[in-house]
Design a protein around this nucleic acid. Structure first.
Length: 572
RNA sequence: UGGGGAAUAGUGUAACGGCAGCACAAGUGACUCUGGAUCACUUAGUCAAGGUUCGAAUCCUUGUUCCCCAGCCA
């Protein structure tokens, strides 16, 4: 906090904690928890919560638990708990030996339910789900008491015991809190505490056929773990009075719940329901599809934990519903990758370039800088020869205004190699498209230097045709075409805004030879193109690259602005 | 039409009765062997109307808009 750089101002939650520390509210303790339900993969929204909870523990020298809120056996699976642990760890956080499951507390929670019954604060209700809804009333009308509300304590105890023993079918009865059917807060209209569910639980197996609801579990779990600050999202604000009521009636330790606004991002969706739908209906290739906002998707895309953590620090924490520009996430990514990614050359859409006056069969090893931002990363050799590939975009027979690249008569620099001047083009006899470009080089400019001090506006990348490694490159764009995917015509849903070109596969790309056996997961900057990472689909000798994010493209902006004037792409 | 929340540049977020600041985005220029990076500069804001005060984004009143709640989901 007292070191260099702008001091991040404390968010409203840290302000509360600071204050609690001052008043010694929890004896100087700060103990938070990250409580996911294992019913899906973690996404960038969870990362915000993870950074908040673990970050607070780190900042205040406190602790943060990982606890699975696994109270609904019908939706939860081990696959999800494994992935959640992997993702939290990958993000750089450690719960040490404090891994908990709400299901570990089932017996205690059951005993608390019995205690509530004995105190006359809970009853077994025989109403069906539909009837419960009817009796609940509406937003503006009070509800009515259940006809089973005044059962005797002993009858309630007996019935609840028999619920546990499995005597009743699913949905036939519930245990309900006896609070107030006229409460303006619907959560307080005799909420369900236990439901009958003959389902196998991922941890407790068939030990139980009744399961506590989240509402009757969450506060108590926090209480058992002596959580001081129970941080959750806004939609649980209405539930806080209920949690407080349970804790007070039970007479047990009560943490302080603080709600913050969940993260929303432009051009994507964040709800688990929707992400599941995209996976199940095949709109993406699994939870770790690089287009997904899931942590594993971002990881496969090439995101770094540092970039995600930095993003979470920059978006702040508040109670206002908001939508963060995905451009900020991309900015944080570029900022991190710029510092650490090794530079290499690769051509995505190849166009043959023949250097006519370069000796046939000659090969020179050109020295290239690995990272201009970090001299410590050293240099490497890149082979140069007579026949090269350059990017189709880097040649125009009829150049638009301000075009600095290769064009008949104009000189450009081949990065780290030589200055060349285009002399002629060869066109495909059928399509009429440019198939090959011929040029001559200036031997005095070896390494890309200009001994005579002459200025060259354009520098383009290249690979030697005989030495390059063939690769597949996958380009990604936003998953949705609109910043707000919910902006649809009547009768349509968010899927109508799915971006049909969110994935583009280029199968005939050429990379400099050093990338031939690049390890999956490693990240590079392909100069002038963007940041890429090696996908697990790669086979030895045939790499597959994902474009993590493009470089800021000033030329594209200029070209777009001048639209209507400049000629279109050479590749059509 | 019940209850609970929230409103500050295009976006996100500070300022806690005392000069409305920062970041991203956008724009302009410098520099450059990546049209990258970097640097400099510019545009742009307190939901509205009243009130209290020497002084209001901040306190009070009224209004407006948006979000959440009628799962035996979390």
């Amino acid at each position: 906090m007292t070191t260099t750089g702008p001091t991040p101002s404390t968010d409203f939650i840290r302000a509360i904690i600071l204050d609690d520390l001052k008043t010694n509210k929890y004896g100087g303790r700060v103990h938070t928890r990250f409580p996911p339900e294992p019913n899906g993969y973690l996404h960038i929204g969870h990362a915000k919560s993870i950074c908040l909870n673990f970050g607070i523990a780190r900042d205040f020298k406190g602790l943060c638990n990982l606890r699975f809120d696994d109270t609904n056996p019908s939706k939860e699976e081990v696959e999800y708990v494994d992935s959640i642990m992997e993702d939290v760890r990958w993000l750089g956080f450690d719960w040490a030996d404090r891994l908990y499951y709400a299901s570990d507390y089932f017996e205690q929670i059951y005993q608390w339910a019995v205690q509530m019954i004995s105190a006359g604060k809970a009853y077994v209700c025989d109403l069906t789900a539909d009837e419960v809804r009817e009796y609940r009333g509406t937003l503006t009308e009070p509800g009515r008491n259940s006809p089973y509300r005044d059962r005797s304590i002993s009858e309630n105890r007996d019935l609840f015991e028999r619920m546990r023993a499995g005597e009743f079918p699913d949905g036939s009865r519930t245990l309900r809190a006896k609070i107030d059917m006229a409460s303006p807060n619907l959560n307080l209209r005799d909420p369900v505490m236990y439901r009958i569910l003959h389902a196998s639980h991922h941890r407790t197996g068939d030990q139980w056929c009744i399961y506590p609801t989240y509402d009757f579990t969450h506060g108590q779990s926090d209480s058992i773990e002596r959580i001081t600050h129970s941080i959750c999202t806004l939609e649980f604000e209405n539930h806080r009075p209920l949690y407080d009521w349970y804790l007070r009636e039970l007479g047990i330790y009560a943490p302080q719940q603080i709600e913050f606004a969940r993260l929303n991002l432009t051009y994507t969706v964040m709800s688990k329901r929707r992400l599941l739908e995209l996976v199940k209906e095949g709109f993406v290739n699994g939870w770790d599809d690089p287009r997904m906002p899931t942590i594993c998707g971002l990881r496969r895309r090439g995101y770094t934990p540092e970039a995600i953590r930095n993003f979470c620090a920059r978006i702040g924490v508040a109670k206002m519903d908001s939508v963060v520009d995905i451009g900020l996430l991309e900015h944080c990514l570029r900022e991190d990758l710029n510092k650490r990614a090794q530079r290499v050359m690769g051509v995505l859409r190849p166009l043959r370039l023949v250097v006519d006056n370069y000796p046939e069969g000659q090969v020179e090893q050109m020295e290239a800088v690995n990272n201009p931002e970090d001299a410590g990363m050293g240099t490497r050799k890149v082979p140069f020869a007579r026949t090269l590939y350059i990017e189709q975009d880097d040649f125009r027979e009829i150049p638009p205004k301000k075009y600095h690249r290769l064009t008949p008569g104009q000189e450009v620099r081949l990065r780290y190699a030589y200055l060349v001047r285009c002399t002629s083009v060869v066109k495909d006899s059928n399509s009429g498209e440019v198939a090959e470009v011929h040029c001559t080089y200036d031997p005095a400019t070896r390494g890309g230097n200009t001994p005579d001090g002459r200025k060259v506006k354009g520098t383009i990348h290249w690979v030697s045709a005989d030495h390059a490694a063939a690769a597949e490159v996958r380009l990604y764009d936003h998953l949705f075409t609109k910043p707000d995917p919910d902006e649809v015509a009547p009768g349509q849903d968010y899927k109508a805004n799915l971006n049909p070109s969110s994935l583009e596969r280029l199968s005939r790309c050429w990379l400099e030879p050093s990338l031939k056996d690049a390890a999956p997961g490693s990240r590079y900057q392909l100069e002038r193109l963007g940041y890429f990472c090696v996908d697990p689909d790669s086979k030895p000798g045939s790499p597959v690259l994902n474009r993590t994010v493009s470089l800021v493209d000033t030329w594209a902006k200029i070209e777009k602005k001048g639209a209507g004037g400049g000629g279109r792409g050479a590749r059509g």
